[in-house]
Computed example of a mutant assay.
Amino acid sequence: MLHDGGRFQMNVAQSLGYGPQDRLLIINADDYGLCHSTNSGIQSLLQDGVVSSATIMMPCAWAREAALWSARHSQLDVGVHLTFTSEWSAMKWGPVYRDGPVDSLVTSEGYFCKDAKSFERQADPVQVRQELNAQIKMALQLGVNLTHADNHMGSLYGLQTGRNFLKQVLEVCANYGLPFRLPRNLLLENGQLAPAELANQARKHAEEADRLGVVVLDYLLGLPFRSQANETYDSFKVEMIKLLQHLHPGVSEIIIHPSLVTDELYAFHEEPLKRGMELELFRDPDIQETIRAEGIIPVKWRDLRALQRSQTRP
């Protein structure tokens, strides 16, 4: 149970029928569709039940392979990784939308901006909304049974400049009946609750999601995307175990970016070995034992989708 300004508020776990102290966990594989190596790695994790779900970057060259495979495996949870940035120098991508101007979303080369700050500064909200719709429609047209939506590199949250596009994405998600990756409670890197000002801002965004009928998370977690100084697989595993041991009651999502480590990945990616670590991490017996020992309950995005659609059904 969350305390909010003198009143009590149910967490998402309670809305799903669990107890106020139950800790539910979604493990999502981001960047599905990035390349064939990433697709192969994520598909193996999905099929083996190692991750809860994955999200496809529809503007990427290998998104079609990911989408068609996902359409054939509709029992697995796959969402759309709404993408507005193109971060690697050797491999680029741009908008899916083809029916009008996209100039505010791209560089002079026609690709998405390299970083979220540039996107936040120049993007036109109308063009953002058109691109959001286009990416979701493309996934649906390819047959994906979309369970949820989230956002590549946090470009829609306004983390760099304060100029966010949450109104647009929440309205689009409401229209398609999709829950969205947005934490109701903001955590610092050490897992503690954020200061009041930041926490209140996150809560206001969650309240807007509530108003629109979009189900969001209680907590969002992840370890650093890039390799840390002197990091090894074992030290990385220790940090993930700590993260799992300190989950708060409610529904938490942990983000990973797994991939097979191949010549293809090395050709463009600056952190191939870290991606390989993340591929193995949740297969690790020590991680699996931690989840069991902590009494953490696996949950799916499709459970949150069912909750959302049951609440908004006429």
Rank of each mutant, 00 (worst) to 15 (best):
C35E: 03
M57V: 07
I42Q: 05
E65Y: 02
A29N: 06
R64E: 15
Y18G: 02
L34N: 06
R7T: 15
L34T: 13
A54F: 01
C35N: 13
G6S: 09
G33A: 09
R7P: 00
G17Y: 10
Q47W: 01
D22N: 12
S52C: 03
T55E: 15
N28Q: 05
Q47P: 01
D22M: 04
L24I: 07
C60T: 15
R23A: 05
D31H: 07
N39A: 10
D31P: 03
G41I: 05
G41C: 03
Q9G: 00
N39H: 12
G17Q: 10
W62T: 13
A29T: 01
N39K: 11
C35S: 14
G5T: 00
D22I: 03
Q21I: 04
A29P: 07
L34V: 11
D48Y: 01
R7V: 13
D48K: 14
V12A: 13
H36C: 07
P59G: 09
M58L: 14
N28H: 06
S53V: 14
E65S: 13
S44H: 12
V51D: 04
D31Y: 07
L46K: 06
A61S: 15
W62F: 12
L25T: 13
L45G: 08
C60K: 05
Q9I: 14
Q9C: 08
N11W: 09
Q14A: 08
N39G: 13
V51Y: 06
G17E: 07
C60Y: 05
G5W: 00
F8I: 14
